[in-house]
Design a protein around this nucleic acid. Sequence first.
RNA 1: GGGCAACUAGCUCAGCUGGUGAGAGCGUCUCCCUUACAAGGAGAAGGUCGCUGGUUCGAGUCCAGCGUUGCCCACCA
Length: 891
Amino acid sequence: MATTIPAPPASALELAEKNFRPAAVEADLYEWWERSGFFKPDEGSHERPFVMMLPLPNVTGDLHLGHALGFGGYEDLIARWHRMRGEPTLYMPGTDHAGIIAQYVVEQELAKEGITRQQLGREKVLEEMWKWMDHYRPRIEKQLRLLGCSLDWSRPNFTMEPSKQRAVRTHFIRLYKRGHLYRDDRIVHWCLQCQTTYSDLEVKHVERTDPLYYVRYPWAGAMPAGTPDVVVATTRPETIVADVAVAMHPDDERWKALVGKEVLVPIVERRVRIIADEAVDPSFGTGALKITPGHDATDFEIGKRHGLPVISVIDKRGMMTPAAGSLAGPDRDTARAMMVSKLRAKGLIVREEQVTHAIGVHERCGTVDEPLVMKQWWVRMDRLAPPAIAAVRDGRITIHPRYQEKVFFNWMENIRDWPVSRQIWWGHSIPAWFCRDCDAVIVPDEDAPDPTRCPKCRSDDIYQDPDVLDTWFSSALWPFTTLGWPDETPDLRRYYPGSLLETGYDIVFFWVARMIMMGLEEMGDIPFHSVYLHGLVRVGSVKMSKSLGNVVSPVGLIEEHGADALRFALVNGVAAGADSQLSQDRLDHARNFANKLWNISRFALRQIDEHPEAFHGHTADQRPQAMGDEARWILSRTDAAIAESSRLIEGYLFGEYLAALEGFVWGELADIYVELAKPSLRSGDATETVRTLAYALDRVLRLLHPSMPFITETIALQLWQRTGKSEPSASLVVSRWPEPGARDSALEERFAVFVDVVRTIRNLRQQAGLDPSARARVSLAGETASIRELLGQIGELTRSEVTVGRGEGTATVVRAIEVRLAAKRDAAGERERLERELALARDLVRRSRELLGREGFAEKAPKEVVEKERAKLAEREERVRLLEQEIRRLE
RNA sequence: GGGCAACUAGCUCAGCUGGUGAGAGCGUCUCCCUUACAAGGAGAAGGUCGCUGGUUCGAGUCCAGCGUUGCCCACCA
């Protein structure tokens, strides 16, 4: 920690308005936190560090709500909690150069000025890319600060910075030398728009209806009479010119006898064989599939199995190549129409129908996939995947919520090799050179400079692979490149492996799985111990996406409601891993809750100001030695809230944690304790009450700080300025998370009765139509022992004089206590009400008796459960008796 | 085709290791500007926890089957 800590901002110390105004304090507080070094891990600590890497946002534009959920909602909550637990906490910032997406975005910008990347050339486009990065990186970093993320900004990271380029080069070379990387001609997804390949994961399937043509392939030789025609169904007739076979399912009785015979590919008149392959679906079309290895992934695989040649008739721009013969020249759509009319002219189209099928499109731009066969770099998965599967299988890495592990296994166990070449310009260059004279592939040694001549044939006519690497190739290394790898840095030693990886479940395959594989490969150890996967945030009920134009900027929401309200609203009450939606209601509610806390604090601070003597020799963070019931009660409940909060956060139940905390702060501290505190504050000795109020507030601020850092810090500064605190920390950020004290469950049980009685009296008052501001008289009879000490408090919350004993007036029974309010009785109406209550009460008695009388219950259920049920039955029976008595009295 | 999950109040959703009048927010109704807060307070109404079986003394919670919905993966031409 910094040796001298600057003074906290005056704005936070002075804000005293009736409503909390986030804009007045947030920027100042963040700046103070950052400048004071609170977000740097304590290097001197011997505690085990907590390490979490930011899921590096793409430098493609501003942050959206999904980022706010992950970064501000979950990660910062988790980081702040660990920091408060005394763990040296490293929440590592960084951004991603975002390869294809970023280049696509910048190209769109250029297109607005009518410029294409080809016109500009590689150098200039890269200049534009860097300009974009230089513009958006600070903006993104600013937005992370607005969210309140406690990132260690002294350790900035960017995937394209020189140190990362060196790391990627090293990694590539090592993978290559170890045999995990190979180069091969294989079919890949090609984007005509982006002019690059992409991986299976980046293919989106969309439903589309297209004409399905049934095309007859004439027999090559004479066939016996009655031999059926071979008819294939296709949506892509333009690829017929690249057909090299027709395939049937081996078990298809219709065609079995014809396997091995030859047909003529229409128009090109090529003789091809009929083959049998399991991949053919006999129920589709006629059960005969045309095989086009050059332009279909399935066909490519089938072709490989049968040793068929590959014919490519479509080029990278989507134009028909000379190999297409009479179709050469036009684009693929025009060629399709041309082919259809040619086939029609020859009478080869036997049928045409509409078919709805799934077609692949590039998820970034929506362009229909064009499978092409190209020479590409591939990462072999056969040896990288098994250790990653094992790490999760044997629990070295746990994924929360746990069911996501099944999803992980399902994918990893069917994983396919990963194509990592991209034909764009923005990205990590590939440290591989090719020799024009002997075709050698040259990958230099790790620390060697770029090669200048071919080691095989000594030619100096070599060139570097012009492709760049998939973005995820570099982000897979994030857990260790951020720590200085491949150098053996102190950071790498201290902070690897990390503790937790928090991200959305939608990038498990893209990123999480690959980090695990590469961590194990390069570091020989898992990259993190746990993974927490949050759900997706929707706006209203619609998924947020750029194409739908409903991307919400968190910045506007922060300006309007404050970062705390946004952070709280995004997480409160959301089940682990579940998708959620952010609505105006949720935001308003969160803001209202923040305001509630603010006003509890204003009340407490005013009381402290009026009773300064309470803090001579005592501080807000010291648990007061309370005597009074209500003080002891709220202290016990505070301890319950502490224990509950810790338990829920440890269990990754963040939504529950906030919901439970809100219930405590609003429903118990504000609605009950603050009200009970008022009379004793007016009386002579307020010391105990003020101290209790301050202490409860101090605890609540700590408990809530991980989610609502700004408001809690503002209040804490104001509180501690008045009361002092025993802990030396200058800020709530680096204060200790509370430990729960001993609870008084007997007292809590008495207060549960108390709360029931209060509600019953208030209800009775309203039913009787009493003037809300008038004082009433209430008498309690029956089993009043547990609340005998709390009569004054009951009176305080119900504006009543409360006595024990028989009284007059309108009555009801709660638990086994008769409650009577001095008011005029409406005999008929009251009788009706009491009869209704009696019926319900009898039903409850019946249920209790049934449960207790059931065979096996008394023997098999835990003793406490049986005891509790017996007590409940007794109370219910007494309530029935009292209600009956009351009804009789009405007669 | 394979996998994962969801189905709880009018709406949006909690309910974690099974324990018995099923919770919240919003909305609805009644009342209240009580000097911390009207961005508030008090009270109320509202649910056969998708369906059918099973396990258990006991099931919203566990198991099986079914139905509906969503998502992911996959070589639907």
